[in-house]
């Protein structure tokens, strides 16, 4: 069996701050294969973005410190790679899309120039993406990169792609800019795409278009995707799998249908219950009492225990290990039951 595209094992990350060392990722396990779209959900500050940034190690160190664990990309541990090797992976093995399309494009350069630069950088390690013979001159490579940039803009649904190459970012709408950023992330033909809240800053109608586009690209390019979001609706609509994070842990993970239909972790259930439905009366939004624990002095045992309605004395001792609760479905709760005895 070949190694999975991405396999994160027991990743621990701490961030130094003036108040002390915050243990922000506390043993993350995640495996992503080609063709899978993993939704990474959780409330603000649970570590989902940090997990995304950790994969291509974009966090400045210090304050970030990878204390333990491994991040394997097709069998190679990226945490052990020297900087130049890591640099080679960015853009052409791992693509990234960030939240705010208005601030993630450089305002001073034409989008064509920005796309061409990314394509040329990726083509240094992956010459195949440019349609030109080996040993081609700089101007020839540039021309090929420009053609690729136009094709990518067309692929992400930007009309008049050839003309729009010469436009500046402020001449695009928010949704169009996110399309440009998707084109930029995909121009190096990455195997893994990390999309950090790609639709949060967009109108709801545009959100759906962008998600559909992302889904189409995944099918076209046979990528694995990690979609970071706090919106369970987005997950249900777009993802094949989901991992729910709480305070630096993945508390439940599995195929989307299984997790949404039969959430086993109390936190997942609380998240699901907080989604307003048609029957929710005005002023009756259900939230989750309490707030995320302080990660400098985290609670002992299960980090969710202080807010958990089912917590018992046993929850306060020892971090709960994931319990298998279904096919590929696991929940990190000592009360979770194996499928044979689960109360379905």
């Amino acid at each position: 069996m070949t190694a999975p595209l991405l396999s994160i094992r027991d990743l621990h990350l701490s961030m130094s701050s003036y108040d002390g060392k915050a243990h922000v990722l506390n043993g993350i396990d995640l495996t992503v294969n080609r063709g899978e779209i993993w939704g990474l959900v959780g409330e603000s500050g649970c570590g989902k973005s940090l997990t995304g940034l950790s994969i291509s190690q974009l966090l400045p160190s210090p304050p970030a410190d990878y204390m333990a664990g491994e991040i394997m990309l097709e069998g190679r541990d990226m945490l052990k790679l020297p900087r130049p090797e890591l640099q080679k992976l960015r853009g052409n093995r791992i693509g990234m899309i960030f939240q705010d399309p208005t601030t993630n494009l450089n305002p001073a350069f034409r989008i064509g120039d920005q796309l061409v630069d990314v394509a040329l950088a990726a083509a240094r390690w992956k010459p195949g993406i440019l349609d030109c013979p080996p040993g081609a001159g700089r101007s020839e490579r540039k021309r090929a990169a420009r053609k690729l940039a136009r094709d990518m803009l067309e692929r992400v649904g930007i009309p008049d792609a050839g003309m729009r190459l010469d436009s500046y970012p402020h001449q695009f709408s928010g949704g169009m800019r996110q399309r440009v950023l998707i084109a930029m992330a995909l121009i190096g033909r990455p195997d893994l795409l990390i999309a950090d809240e790609p639709t949060t800053a967009l109108d709801v109608s545009v959100q759906a278009q962008i998600l559909k586009l992302l889904k189409g690209c995944v099918a076209d390019y046979d990528m694995g995707v990690i979609l970071i979001t706090h919106n369970l609706g987005v997950v249900a609509e777009t993802c094949s799998h989901v991992a729910v994070m709480y305070a630096g842990n993945i508390v439940e993970s599995g195929p989307v249908a299984a997790v949404i239909e039969r959430p086993e972790h109390p936190y997942t259930r609380a998240l699901m219950a907080s989604i307003p439905t048609r029957d929710t009366r005005r002023g009756m939004l259900r939230g989750l009492a309490g707030s995320v624990p302080n990660l400098i002095t985290p609670p002992p045992g299960c980090r969710f225990a202080p807010r958990c309605p089912h917590a018992t004395a046993a929850c306060m001792t020892g971090v709960p290990a994931p319990v298998r609760v279904g096919r590929d479905h696991a929940a990190a709760c000592i009360h979770a039951k194996e499928p044979e005895t689960a109360h379905v």
Partner: peptide
């Protein structure tokens, strides 16, 4: 700025990011 993070995440060489993208802004 966010766009510098994007440029890093997409593998642009550090020298190019600083002398071209950062300098002009």
């Amino acid at each position: 700025q966010d766009y510098v993070m994007t440029a890093r995440a997409l593998g642009l060489p550090r020298r190019q990011i600083i002398t071209k993208y950062v300098a002009r802004n």
